[in-house]
């Protein structure tokens, strides 16, 4: 079971309080009805499925209830960072290696 840092509660908490919510930074188009079938298909179905650092969404379902974003390494299952919804996509180069969890 993972520990996940909620950027709203500012606490690192057990995964059981959270729900996964798919890839991050895929905005719903402004005017879907004007999109071509190809573009709509791209939005609806295509995901990057990265091996390595992956931008994804979680919801602190049984906590503050907020959706937020995370960068998780899909190989090691380590979270590189979590950040509030609407915040810009962090640059991978600037993400420090994860720090050891502190004391109790």
């Amino acid at each position: 079971m993972l520990l996940i840092h909620c950027p709203y509660c500012d606490e690192t908490l057990p995964e059981v309080e959270f729900a996964y919510a798919g890839e991050a930074h895929i905005a719903r188009p402004e005017n879907p009805s004007e999109m071509s079938d190809e573009d709509w298909q791209e939005f609806l179905f295509m995901r990057t499925n990265t091996k390595g650092p992956y931008y994804e969404r979680w919801r602190h379902l049984h906590g503050c209830g907020r959706f937020f974003n995370a960068v998780r390494d899909t190989v090691s299952d380590k979270f590189l960072t979590t950040y509030q919804a609407g915040a810009p996509r962090p640059d991978l180069d600037t993400l420090l290696p994860p720090q050891a969890e502190g004391g109790k």
């Binding site: 905005a27 209830g65 959706f67």
Partner: peptide, 13 residues
Amino acid sequence: LNMMEDYLQTEWP
């Protein structure tokens, strides 16, 4: 409820 919250929080804040 989860689906509605998702749209509300992330698409139409």
